[in-house]
Design a protein around this nucleic acid. Sequence first.
DNA 1: CTGAAAGCGCTTACAG
DNA 2: CTGAAAGCGCTTACAG
Lengths: 340, 340
Amino acid sequence: MSVSVLTVADRAGVSVSTVSRALRGVPGISAVTRKRVQEAADELGYVVSPSASRLATGRTRTIAVVVPLLSKWFFAEVIAAAGRVLSREGYDVLLTELSTPELRAEFFGSPRLHGRSDGALVVALQLTPEELATLGAQGQAVALVGSERAGASSVRVEDRIGGLAATRHLLNLGHERIAFLGIQESPGSPLGGVPPAERLLGYRDALAEAGLPADPALELGVENTVDDGVAAMASLLTMADPPTAVVAASDELAFGALSTLRGAGLDVPADFSVVGYDNHEFARVVGLTTIDHSVADQGRLAAEALVASLAGQPAAVGRIEPRLVVRGSTAPPRRLRVGS
Amino acid sequence: MSVSVLTVADRAGVSVSTVSRALRGVPGISAVTRKRVQEAADELGYVVSPSASRLATGRTRTIAVVVPLLSKWFFAEVIAAAGRVLSREGYDVLLTELSTPELRAEFFGSPRLHGRSDGALVVALQLTPEELATLGAQGQAVALVGSERAGASSVRVEDRIGGLAATRHLLNLGHERIAFLGIQESPGSPLGGVPPAERLLGYRDALAEAGLPADPALELGVENTVDDGVAAMASLLTMADPPTAVVAASDELAFGALSTLRGAGLDVPADFSVVGYDNHEFARVVGLTTIDHSVADQGRLAAEALVASLAGQPAAVGRIEPRLVVRGSTAPPRRLRVGS
DNA sequence: CTGAAAGCGCTTACAG
DNA sequence: CTGAAAGCGCTTACAG
């Protein structure tokens, strides 16, 4: 039925060892033999059995990509970019979505990757030391996107610089009351753990730099959804002394904020300025000024680091410098323009 | 090093055959033996080797999910839903993105799934007979989302009904010049093949039903991106006798249309009505009236059909009936309200 | 440069 | 209900 190394060997008139070596391109095979084997394999339509090969070598040439949520643009984008390099390098991609605390507990509670993958590319999850150890115990090389851990490769996004750049931009335009719309996932959220507060720190840095006081009332923390952005912006507008601009920690939050502002009859950027964070595919069409942090590159770099570490290289950490993308959602505050 | 069935067998004082049977829960093992084996396995932290098991059984318990593009909401949503049922059923998910014609040709040009998966869940790709045959030759069960083929399971979305419902809604509001913004992928697009024109047919049905002539000038076909929606809407507005409403074949196109309308200083829905198609996660926040076609259900049903057919059931086709979701982007045409 | 043989870790008729 | 043995299809020291 299925053609195996033996079939090819018979046809080529060599041993199975030679077939195996010839087909994998290992050195130490005469060119003529190699050619003969290759031809026999082609004629028979032979294709190696992954299971057998994996069993014999102990390596799977598969990478598990672990994400909290598939349906968010950010994750899909990271996976896509990572997948492209992995498949180019000959790795299969095993997809795992850990969308609930239960799934997460289950996943890390048993050696679910054992024998299934050689490495895990973990996106956004803030792994506990135990979770990381579990991965190691299963013989997985690890690469992280959105967090850093000793012993694992990772790609580090300089979010503090991003937060700084976003806020400085507003400051330069003349804004003095600037709110920060941060991400604060609830314990039950798939993201779990503590999300990086660096964007907030960058925001504070910029304020301090400008000699402006940090007003805690202007620092909000909500879940990373458009809906929460809507609600948070609404609450900002009801303040006695409302801000004239907001730095959102994600574009989704910014989209929500824009929606609220429009609904309130306010003009963006004439009445209110908004800066997002992500450079989401929809940011351009909405004209959102935002911070680009090379989402696809994050996936690409993590995948490359993982491949390298499976090739024996030491764990590496890539760096990404966010940059401001100015579009139409930011302008000087009305007060200034009126006065001019 | 690694604990195998043999280790467990020794510890439990039984043979490896018994270990194998006990652990897999096959009948014909005494309860007491089963318990003893289970305990031994637990104590040793034994976990079966997938490669060995796959090699021995010839089944991989893996499903390949094949999509044209990962980073579009629709695909991510389908994958997520499919993945949830697959992983619940004990299947691994092998992810394959065929984002270019080259990748597609390569994928179908060689038995890339051979021995890697038991089935393929193919999303949106319009498979040629050869491509479908290639999958079959690799022993893959097939389930399709967004197309139908003899011998394969599929989930059929009644898009003609969706197109009809969208257009009727506008007709009922009093619109008489309604444009259709359709999807027409270029040959180089990852979607390839001919996309279903059913939404357009439904649009025409509704017009005919209302005794309105179909005006070819009002039927546009562009690529399914926000940008193309922007451009198409702009061209509609420059017509000598412009429409008062548009049915877009996707929410992304609708988003683009909304953006153009807003940019032109037109009020939606006062000056112009827009109906989308998808019920994209952002449709609600933008207040877009649209057609919901249960995107997650499409993934879920396809996965269930695939699992069933791997369990020996015949290929099945699921059906999804799209339904109108009325939000704020549609209203009677201005002419009517002015006149009243 | 090539081959014979052991081994990877399971599953499954076949016997009993 | 349980076990001995063959087989799944590769890879890789070990010899030559």
